[in-house]
Design a protein around this nucleic acid. Structure first.
Length: 368
DNA sequence: AAACCGTGGGA
DNA sequence: TTCCCAAGGTT
């Protein structure tokens, strides 16, 4: 009888035992495993959301040098926090963490809460992070179910539920909750993730060296490659983006994005989504609506593509020209605090986001 | 429930 | 090249 999900108590206990033993012997030495400071563990867990360990390590080290304690992070201006996060992605994580730390400072006397209700109500702390921080830092017996854990549990316990569904995460949280060995929540939760990261990996799991091979039902049935079940996601939708390149005395016109949505609050070369009509007209219209005069659009300079997780930008860069009166008009409103300004081309890098605009910059310099 | 929010590395 | 996806959270 295939696809039945029977939960075997003996299997679960043997599994937990083997896992904890293996973890204690084989865990990696990671920067956030050096001490058990709840603040540091919290920061690491936020950075590790949807992000690989190798990518996180340098950011984590720098972050801890800049903000060694919860209080120092709480006291820091948001600009510095975002700057330290630049390049890591998912920037609301940084803003939420900053806000949450400030709440801890004011409401909890600077001590990271060890109660699920208090911790779970902080911005940016969802069910996974709640369980991870409380179990790792305080050894509380609370599940911490992430993608690794769902993969491991699906395989070991022969679970065919789609791990893309929220309901499946809840099912697995209940299973894990019952398996946590008394007094060993920290090792067990980290062991689950460590096994998922090193052995029970996506695609071709390394079953030959697996410490829980003897209790794994997927291995027994030879279906470890079929699990976990996960529905494919849709391809990113495409957007046509026009970028005006406005230069004046070796300075480039940039602006700051809205505080909400994609790349919130970040500086960029201006981008406008093309709506309907041809690109130069669309660009001229968008610019007119914003500044009240018609920009002269030159020829198309070049095309750059950038793919986000859910959006694909086809960016066409147009060289633009201003009359003398328009030049002085823009120069007058050039102001960092109001969200748009001219910056020297050498400084463009620090106001633009890596990867997307650096490509533009290099091509622009090459064509001078 | 499903869309939205980044990035870089590996197959 | 293209696709997948990695220690998720919010709306």
């Amino acid at each position: 009888m295939k696809h039945t999900q029977r939960y075997d108590q003996h299997q679960a206990m043997a599994f937990a035992d083997l896992l904890v033993q293996w973890y204690e012997k084989n865990k990696r030495q990671l920067p956030w495993r050096r001490e058990r400071d709840p603040y540091r563990i919290w920061v690491s867990e936020i950075m590790l959301q949807q992000t690989r360990v190798e990518a996180v390590i340098p950011y984590y080290e720098r972050f801890m040098e800049q903000f060694p304690t919860l209080q120092e992070l709480a006291d820091a201006p948001e600009d510095r926090v975002l700057k330290a996060w630049e390049g890591l992605g998912y920037y609301s994580r940084a803003r939420n963490l900053h806000q949450a730390v400030r709440e801890v400072q004011t409401h909890y006397n600077g001590i990271v809460p060890d109660e699920p209700d208090a911790m779970g109500n902080l911005p940016g702390v969802g069910p996974y992070t709640l369980g991870a921080v409380l179990s790792i830092a305080y050894n509380k017996e609370i599940p911490a179910v992430d993608g690794n854990v769902m993969r491991v549990i699906s395989r070991v316990f022969y679970l065919y539920d789609d791990i893309g569904k929220q309901k499946t995460r809840k099912t697995i949280e209940q299973m894990v909750q019952q398996m946590i060995p008394t007094g060993k929540a920290s090792q067990f939760n980290q062991g689950l993730m460590e096994l998922g990261a090193l052995v029970c990996i996506p695609g071709n799991p390394r079953c030959l060296g697996c410490p829980v091979q003897t209790v794994c039902r997927a291995y027994a049935e030879g279906v470890q490659k079929e699990l976990p079940v996960k529905e494919k996601k849709k391809p990113p939708r495409e957007q046509q983006i026009v970028v005006p390149l406005i230069e004046q005395e070796r300075k480039i016109w940039i602006n700051r994005r809205s505080n909400e949505g994609l790349l919130a609050g970040l500086w960029q070369l201006p981008t406008y989504e093309v709506t309907g009509e041809d690109e130069p007209t669309s660009l001229q219209t968008s610019f007119y609506e914003q500044y009240g005069f018609r920009l002269q659009i030159g020829e198309r300079f070049f095309t750059v593509q950038h793919v986000f997780s859910h959006i694909k930008w086809n960016m066409n860069v147009y060289k633009c020209f201003l009359s003398e009166s328009e030049q002085s008009l823009l120069a007058q409103v050039s102001d960092k605090d109001s969200g748009h300004c001219f910056v020297p081309i050498e400084e463009l890098e620090q106001f633009t986001f890596p990867n997307v605009h650096l490509k533009i910059l290099s091509k622009w310099k090459g064509m001078e």
